[in-house]
Amino acid sequence: MSTRIDRNELAERVAADIPEGSYVNLGIGAPTLVANYLPDDQEIILHTENGLLGMGPAPDADRIDPDLINAGKQPVTALPGAAYFHHADSFAMMRGGHLDVCVLGAFQVSETGDLANWSTGAPGAIPAVGGAMDLAIGAKSVYVMTDLLTKTGEPKLVAACTYPLTGVACVTRVYTDHAVFDVTPDGFAVREAFGENTVESLSELTGLTLREADAAAATSGSET
């Protein structure tokens, strides 16, 4: 037994919580791995901020279309039933509360659901925010997918974010390599601990007071 699952296993775990019929935005970077684990026999519609609903997987190398890309500017495909639209409509889908789920990366998530994922605030760093702030406050359920600890061992779940905020009280659930955490009015609750992790060991790792999640709140999309 180990205390961590790998990134692909984590993507698979996130995918398992996305119900059929959902409109989903997977942002850029690691969360896009979730698409690999959405079941083929279910219709889950992927949104990309640059103007496509019904995004499909990457094309074969000889079928790359520079006009058809995702938010990470990588080549993608459009599934039968897809729709294109301009940027104001695309962000109306986020800001207007039409997306069911978005999955984002994070530098930090606070126990009140604040998200920091766009800037470390380091002097001299070039800032870039993209659609992160719109997604964070727009989707009905905001899932964060991240390692629990930074490369230097600092917990990313914190009492209060020290990095610049992306959104306030916006995160629904945090999927980490150690455990899945719900954001609740009483702070983080452990929905599922992977491997040998326990509520106690996770409390020790994060320095936070954690509790077990309420079974009644297990359905995806629980609001905070």
Binding site: H87, A88, G138, L165, V168
Partner: peptide, 29 residues
């Protein structure tokens, strides 16, 4: 630096003759 949705909506607002608008994006940041 402008959040992408605010960038799009600010452009849309200019084209639509809107004087300004209240957006939830970026609140508290």
């Amino acid at each position: 630096l402008v959040p992408q949705g605010n960038l799009a909506e600010r452009i849309r607002a200019a084209g639509a003759g809107i004087g300004a608008f209240f957006s939830p994006t970026g609140v508290g940041t």
